[in-house]
């Protein structure tokens, strides 16, 4: 059975033995010595590299544009710096005060050259890999995107000192998200990978999550589903205390980081949301041996492999992660007896 079918069967309620590498285009490019800037500048030239690397592993889901989640903000005038290594970042905040917010023109997203080329490349890569795997396009959730637009430290302070402005930025950030994501869904992308690292329990309290992240995640989740696409949520770090709220939102898949007790996550999400996780992406996947990976994979399956479950690393893997470790994880996930009907 190919990966794509495993995930589709799971959406249909079957307990297939699914596994995904949490490998992204960033991972593929890094493996082959290319930067994310080179990909953005000439995506069609490097698309074959991404496709080849994606098809080389038997992953049920492949994640695209994880290194380029800043592009919609860039379309609005955000000045991004592309370091030699790592993902692009904003050098200066796009929004410094309320007047900046009102100056931003959301229509620029639809006509932006980078946005359009990424939409086309996502479509192109999807066509090449979709027989084998589901392609999930990464869009940054409103909360994390708002933090990026204002500046992370400023946004964190704003949550306590200027709630009204934080809400205004979040509403606008949600509009950006919807405008951007619609382009991909209308192109035929079947799954949206929504990442919200700033909404982690490592950064904000559950109270702040409920007030500032939850309503917007709920809104975008409903929207994407209403358009017929599936939602894959990932929040880095410890999310254990807010999984009840995630269950309430009800994404199709929730991926948890290695800091979360996977057994407890399974209990909290029940079978309403498909749980994915959560092998340590660095200590085990990158720096561990094949035997370490096997041990950690079996442990995850033992704790959470009943019902619908996708064995995955707890977060995106780096380009340095040994291929044999990735393949071992996928092999164990795909042969898991616990998951099978």
């Amino acid at each position: 059975m190919v990966g794509r079918q495993r995930i589709i069967d799971m959406f249909l309620g079957k307990n297939t033995a699914a596994a995904s590498a949490f490998a992204t285009e960033f991972w593929a490019l890094n493996r082959r010595g290319y930067t994310i800037k080179e990909f953005l500048d000439n995506p069609f030239k490097l698309a074959p590299v991404v496709i080849e690397e994606a098809l080389n592993i038997d992953s049920d889901i492949f994640f695209l544009l994880a290194g380029l989640t800043s592009v919609p903000v860039m379309a609005l005038g955000g000045e991004l710096k592309f370091p030699e290594k790592g993902a692009p970042f904003m050098e200066n905040p796009l929004i410094r005060d309320k007047s900046d917010l009102f100056k931003l023109d959301i229509n620029k997203i639809k006509s932006d050259r980078n946005v359009n080329s990424l939409r086309q490349i996502a479509d192109f890569i999807n066509e090449k890999v979709k027989e084998k795997m589901i392609l999930a396009v990464n869009c940054r959730a409103p909360f994390t995107q708002a933090a990026q637009m204002v500046g992370p430290d400023t946004f964190m302070r704003m949550l306590r000192k200027d709630e009204n402005f934080a809400d205004e930025v979040l509403r606008f950030s949600t509009e950006i998200f919807l405008e951007y994501v619609t382009l991909f869904i209308e192109s035929g992308i079947e799954m949206i990978y929504i990442s919200d690292p700033s909404a982690s329990g490592d950064l904000i309290s559950k109270r702040h999550f409920e007030k500032f992240a939850f309503p917007y995640l709920d809104k975008i989740n409903r929207y994407i589903k209403s358009k017929g696409a599936k939602t894959f949520f990932h929040i880095c770090g410890d999310t254990g205390d807010r999984l009840d709220l995630i269950r309430e939102i009800g994404p199709d898949i929730m991926s948890v980081d290695h800091k979360v007790d996977i057994g407890e996550a399974k209990r909290l999400l029940e079978d309403k949301v498909i749980l994915a996780g959560n092998i340590d992406p660095s200590s085990v996947m990158e720096y561990g041996s094949v035997a370490d990976v096997a041990r950690a994979a079996k442990e995850c399956i033992k704790k959470a492999g009943h019902g619908r479950f996708i064995l995955m690393p707890g977060c995106e893997i780096s380009g340095e992660t040994p291929l044999e470790n990735i393949k071992e994880m996928l092999k164990i996930g795909h042969s898991s007896k616990l998951n099978k009907d």
């Binding site: 430290d153 964190m156 302070r157 949550l159 306590r160 000192k161 329990g201 490592d202 950064l203 904000i204 309290s205 702040h208 205390d241």
Partner: peptide, 14 residues
């Protein structure tokens, strides 16, 4: 002890 998070700690440091 997870009583304070990053926003609170930043404001304390301010």
């Amino acid at each position: 002890e997870n009583e304070y998070f990053v926003p609170e700690l930043l404001l304390c440091s301010d």
